[in-house]
Design a protein around this nucleic acid. Structure first.
Lengths: 292, 292
DNA sequence: CTGCACTATGAATCGCTAA
DNA sequence: GTTAGCGATTCATAGTGCA
């Protein structure tokens, strides 16, 4: 089964209406932040941001499967020397709308934007807000396990007698451990702090969304042939990653330049792979060209 | 000039009234989180938390100098599968009270609490909310610069693959115990993500945060002989650090056991230092003992 | 005094059972 | 219905003691 790509050109509030109820497994997106990227998106004003986003999140709530997850990458900007509060207000409003605010992951940016100000340091993190429809949702934790820390190598080399049996914490918390369970273990589960670099090679689009970010959440919250939606697709990072991971991808983009860039990109890559296959199989390449 | 320690036993809402207006340069504290530490602090209920805290923050606003800073360490817990929203509601309420919410630092905990659940990962971060009275406040950024350059570069070059995955940007976020050693070397300003371990002391009461945390903010927001206040002093980590850094320290603690522990601790250390000095100067030690 | 082995434990969370 | 208590689960770090 081949995974599909669907692209829509237009305002996502309207385009989302074309998507059926309960059909998407993961929504992951980085909407235009308030009052930023004015030159491209026209800029949503800070005090209008919540009102602007709520109709969209309402549609997202409709199209998401009950077991699905919505990951919202956002960070409030500084206004008049203060962090503005629209993100917090948005969370409160979305909960009233019916969303569950399950978790807040932190994206710790390794190489954050340079700069120096007298009253603040560089901003090295963004919010990755996890919303769900139900308390029960799909999560595939084993898909994102990471290598165990170096401490384990020396720690697990020689086990004491107490290590081999269950050790119960003395503080009465009921917490204990059995270190010997860790023998042979090479990987552990990550935490809610995601630690990635920003990408410098972003093309025209100003969003610095490294591929690893959607990749991590796609692995965590979907399986193959599931459907991933990015209602602010931009240059199409999420769509590209989802497709490579054999997930069906739906992208909506309001700016026609980005939309056509995506079309070209995914056509071309599809074309390339057809060409390659055709060559490999020594089949006629003409058919490929006619498709492209 | 010798730095002073003032300790108060009692509810900080009342004890704060003894402190004059505009007299404190830095407030740094970690109040009991909602519904946590029940065994010691009785536990403040989530839906009463904002109402409980606002009278305290009102007093804090009064005692803080116009150029001063308030750093609040807090993190919301999970309730019914959702992150609770009381911290966000507190921020919104404190802004109405007159506070400026200048910044949110992230404390990325190196050794977070273990555990495994089907629907979430371990929580590895806490909020460090920075509030101010005015847009202009004292900030001594040079005091917290961290090293970069040949040392960091060569260190980074030789990382193994697993190290690369797990590497926690020492160049952007960490800060060590001997920052003074690095003066003269290549240094860079840190970011708004701080990366520290929780402390694993085997003392009677667990310190809420590692010494490096108040140390960092005291360096960043105060100079010698400034005044640091911790209205939830607990075992006295902040007080101890402030005193060692030659800042005047004010601590308030409601639990008499902790209060008397602090008294004893700071008496003893004062006594120890007097003893030492007396020995060094070959003066009579009897005077010291009479003080203790 | 350095290095290694080993101990202790930390603002946790979920699901079940009992009242 | 609702709440309160208990068992199970888990990783990385600092501190201590000894060679």
């Amino acid at each position: 089964m081949k995974s599909k790509i669907e692209l829509y050109l237009g305002d996502c509030k309207k385009e989302l209406m074309k998507i059926p109820d309960n059909s998407v497994d993961l929504i992951i997106t980085s909407p235009p932040y308030a009052d930023q990227r004015k030159s491209t998106y026209g800029g949503v004003k800070i005090n209008e941001y919540v009102d602007w986003f709520l109709p969209i999140s309402k549609e997202l709530l409709r199209v998401l499967k009950p077991t699905g997850t919505f990951v919202l990458n956002i960070k409030e900007k500084v206004v008049n020397g203060e962090r503005s509060t629209y993100v917090m207000e948005l969370i409160l409003a979305m909960r009233k709308q019916g969303w569950l605010w399950t978790e807040e992951f932190i994206w710790h940016k390794k190489n954050c934007f340079p700069g120096k100000w007298s009253n603040r340091f560089r901003d090295a993190w963004e919010r990755l807000l996890q919303f769900n429809k139900n308390k029960k949702f799909n999560m595939y934790q084993d898909a994102v396990k990471i290598p165990i820390g170096d401490w384990a190598k020396s720690r697990l080399k020689n086990l004491s007698e107490t290590d081999k049996i269950r050790y119960n914490a003395k503080n009465g918390s009921g917490f204990g451990k059995n270190v010997s369970n860790w023998i042979g273990k090479n990987t552990v589960y990550p935490t809610n702090v995601v630690h990635l670099s920003t990408e410098c090679n972003s093309k025209n689009h100003s969003a610095a969304f490294p591929k690893e970010l959607p990749e991590w959440f796609i692995r965590l919250f979907t399986q193959e042939n599931d459907t991933v939606l990015d209602p602010f697709a931009g240059s199409g990072t999420t769509i590209e990653v989802a497709n490579k991971m054999n997930r069906n991808a739906i992208g909506i983009e309001i700016i026609s330049e980005y939309y056509y860039d995506m079309k070209r990109q995914f056509y071309e890559s599809k074309c390339d792979s057809l060409k390659k296959r055709a060559k490999d199989e020594k089949a006629e390449t003409a058919r490929c060209y006619s498709i492209c």
